[in-house]
Structures are given as C-alpha cells and as structure tokens.
C-alpha cells in the first residue's frame, strides 16, 4: 500500500539531489570563473561557436516571429478597432519576451546539445582524465569558457534578434497591412522604453548562462558509451529549455509585476 508513496518519495529525493548537484556545479563554475588561470583562446573560440554561428538561426526565428506577431496583433486588434497598435506591440513583445525566449530556446537547441555531446564524448574517451593528468582543470578549460561565452554573447544575439524581429513586423506591416513606413517606425520608437530593451538583454544573459551550464553539466556527468552521450545531449536540451521558460517567468515577475 505504501509502494506508490515510496516511489513518489524516491522520485522527489532524486529530483532534489539532482537540483543540488546542478547548484553546486553552478557555484563551482562561478568560483573557477573568478580564479586564474584563464583561457582566453578557449573563450574566444567558444564565443565564435555559441554567438556568431548562432546568428542565422536566431535571425530567421526572429524575422518570422516578428512577421507573424504583426499579423496576429492586426487581426486581434481589429476586433476593437485598435489596428494602430501593431508597431508598438510588436516592438514591446519582441524586446521584452519573444526575442529573449525564442532566441534562447533556439540557442539551447543548437548549443546545449553540441556542448553536452562534445564534453560527453571527451569524458567517454578519457579526454577529461587526460586534461587532469596534464595539470589542466576541466572546469576551467571546458566549462568556464563556454558558460562565460554564452552569458556574454546571448544578450548580443537577443539584441540582433530584437532588431530583426521588429524589422519582420515592419515588413509585414508596411507590405501586407498597409501601414505607412514612416508612421510605423515612429510608432515603434515612441512607446519603447529603455528598460523594455535592457530587461530582454538581462534575460538573454541569464538564459545564456543556463544553456551553457546545462550543456557542460550533462556532458561532464555523461554515462558510458554512445547511449550515455545521447542521453546527456537530450537531457541538456530539455533541462536548458525548461529552465529558460521557468526563469523567464521569474524574471518577468521580478522586472514587471508591480
């Protein structure tokens, strides 16, 4: 009779233990981030991989999202004669919410998976052990550059994505919905505040940190063989995506619920 309760308890304990491990891993990452040696070349390489090479996927996501958002707001707004709010809502919606969240999710799919697979394979083939025997700390050499690079470059990606998303809205607004080009741009700028943009960038930094952290955590804790690396990759993407959505709610609550 107690079996279901025991199973529930075991699951809860395992989940809490997992959470504890992730928090310790995050603290250890931050500690290693602040103490030398620093690997500048690895940071530059990671920034290129995570930031620069994610530009196309983030840009395309933002472009189509901005366009679809303009269509939706236009048709929704038409119900109460508020079609004119399209530029404002597209801008606010993109920079506050959709830019960071969708950009973050796309980067999570692209980057958390590749980090977990790379580090997981390194673990399985004893490359992590080899690093240690060559007096190089794997956290400093592998985790810190990736986490730092993602924390620094994802906000930049978000900024670029915001701009492209607003441009997508502009294209649809002026091309399909008959907005005047100058009026659309004026409306976009008029009601957009500094904090709208800055809050989105802060979200981007947090998402970037979480994405690379999950990739590294699951990679470093990968099981044996191809199956272990596959499971680590899947878990990294799932965990990064869920954490992005959860932390997005918390950050939105902190920034805007007043």
């Amino acid at each position: 009779m107690l079996a279901p309760l025991a199973a529930l308890g075991r699951g809860t304990l395992a989940a809490l233990a997992g959470l504890g491990h992730v928090v310790l891993f995050a603290l250890s990452t931050i500690q290693h981030m602040l103490t030398p040696p620093f690997y500048a070349k690895e940071l530059a390489q990671a920034s290129l991989m995570i930031g620069y090479f994610s530009l196309p996927v983030v840009g395309l996501t933002a472009l189509f999202t901005g366009g679809a958002l303009a269509l939706q707001i236009y048709s929704g707004g038409a119900r109460f004669n508020a079609e004119a709010v399209v530029p404002t809502i597209v801008a606010i919606g993109m920079v506050r919410e959709l830019g960071p969240v969708l950009g973050g999710l796309m980067v999570a799919a692209r980057v958390a998976s590749s980090i977990a697979a790379e580090i997981g394979t390194m673990k399985v083939t004893e490359q992590i052990d080899a690093l240690v025997t060559l007096s190089t700390h794997p956290m400093k050499y592998l985790t810190v550059p990736r986490v730092l690079a993602a924390t620094l470059t994802v906000p930049v990606l978000v900024a670029v994505g915001d701009s492209i998303g607003i441009f997508g809205g502009y294209l649809v607004g002026t091309g399909r919905l008959g907005f005047n080009s100058a009026a659309y741009l004026t409306n976009t700028m008029q009601f957009l505040e500094f904090w709208d943009i800055a809050s989105g960038l802060v979200k981007g930094a947090v998402f970037g940190f979480l994405i690379a952290l999950m990739g590294c955590y699951y990679g470093m804790n990968s099981g044996r063989g191809a199956q272990g690396v596959g499971a680590a990759t899947k878990s990294a993407v799932v965990a990064a995506s869920v954490l992005i959505l959860a932390s997005n709610y918390v950050l939105t609550e902190v920034f805007f619920a007043a």
């Binding site: 390194m122 083939t125 004893e126 490359q127 052990d129 080899a130 240690v132 025997t133 060559l134 007096s135």
Partner: peptide, 20 residues
C-alpha cells in the same frame, strides 16, 4: 592539490588525444 601531476606523464589506453 594536483600540483604533483606536473611530474607525471600518462599514456591512455585509447590515446585520449584532444580531437579539437
């Protein structure tokens, strides 16, 4: 602390070369 590893060299079974 792993400072003593400066004196060590290790040949791993699979080579464990860094493929990057």
């Amino acid at each position: 602390p792993s400072d003593f590893l400066d004196r060590f060299g290790m040949l791993f079974q699979g080579g464990a070369l860094f493929d990057s």
